[in-house]
């Protein structure tokens, strides 16, 4: 028994090492855990909380999404390409107006960048960004006051882009879901078509027909992406199987499946409502902004 456990432990260690090694190859975009992502732990909690609330009120008023990322190191990644990658992954700003800004600071390299979304390039120009870095942030950083520099930079950014957009125009659903509607639609349509087809076909050879249904779901959803196709097929197969189970009255064997199926869709939808945290609204970035060092 203990040998099995030891083997298992060794396997876990090996997998862990592989995971760490893989992540060391390219600097990953950190998860968007809030408006201020301080991975280097330079901001005192009260400053971070204050800035977060400033950014929140700003977004409520203008719909502009501004986020700050402080990294211990870039690990050799070029600043500009990494910053663009982070901004487009986080999708700051609203879809369509692209009004997001990212302030990125890399401590070890002593470099920073203000990445400006397409929609704000007119107000927060490259020049204005460079001035904010040069006049607001760098002098404070050189004096050793990192929190003060970051706060001054954020406030200068907010002051510049104030009034460029108004929150009233915001369709609130858009600012919340970072999901591309078209991608999501493919999956939903795929599942719908798959389930319907599977149900129509499910007289007689039940499981084979269920498979056919999921194949159709895959066919439709793979237009979005291959992975989503597989996901849609899986969900379809599961739904069909559950429906067939309940129809056959097979609840005796696994009674819990029936109620589970009923609550299933609710739980599925629930996983998308990331209302508690902060999430990007689908904004896009074209490389505008400025870089600097201290």
């Amino acid at each position: 028994m203990s040998r099995v456990w030891r083997k298992l432990a060794r396997l876990i260690v090996v997998l862990g090492v592989m995971l760490v090694a893989a992540s060391a190859l390219a600097l990953d975009v950190p998860p968007l855990t809030g408006r201020i992502v301080d991975l280097a732990h330079v901001l005192p909690a009260d400053v971070a909380a204050l800035l977060t609330s400033d950014l929140e009120t700003h977004e409520a008023k203008t719909s502009n999404q501004v986020a700050v990322l402080i990294l211990p190191s870039l690990d050799g990644e070029p600043l500009e390409s990494f910053s663009h990658r982070v901004a487009t992954t986080w999708k700051l700003g609203r879809k369509g107006t692209d009004n997001g800004v990212l302030l990125l600071i890399a401590l070890r390299e002593r470099k920073m960048r203000i990445e400006v979304g397409y929609g704000l390039e007119g107000t927060l120009t490259d020049l204005r960004s460079a001035h904010i870095i040069r006049n607001e942030i760098v002098p404070r950083f050189r004096a050793g006051d990192l929190p003060g520099g970051i706060a001054a930079g954020v406030h200068a950014i907010l002051g510049t882009i104030e009034g460029s957009y108004r929150a009233e125009e915001v369709p609130s659903a858009h600012t919340r879901t970072g999901q591309e509607p078209s991608t999501f639609q493919y999956v939903l349509v795929g599942i719908f078509v798959g389930v319907m087809a599977g149900l129509v076909l499910s007289h007689g050879l039940q499981y084979t027909r269920a498979l056919l249904g999921s194949a159709l779901a895959f066919l439709v959803a793979q237009f979005a992406s291959l992975v989503l196709g597989v996901v849609a097929a899986g969900i379809t197969a599961l739904l069909l199987w559950l429906i067939l189970q309940t129809n056959r009255g097979g609840r005796g064997r696994r009674g819990s499946w029936g109620p589970d199926f009923m609550s299933g869709p609710g739980g599925f939808g629930g996983s998308y409502s990331g209302d508690i945290g902060f999430s990007g609204g689908g904004g896009d970035f074209g490389g505008g902004g400025a870089s600097g060092d201290w």
């Binding site: 500009e80 390409s81 663009h84 490259d126 020049l127 960004s129 460079a130 040069r134 970035f285 074209g286 490389g287 505008g288 902004g289 400025a290 870089s291």
Partner: peptide, 18 residues
């Protein structure tokens, strides 16, 4: 000159993205 250089850098970066 510094201003022009910032603008040039910004533009080169946009070119790279485009």
């Amino acid at each position: 000159f510094r201003d022009l250089q910032s603008q040039l850098e910004g533009t080169e970066n946009r070119i790279a993205v485009a």
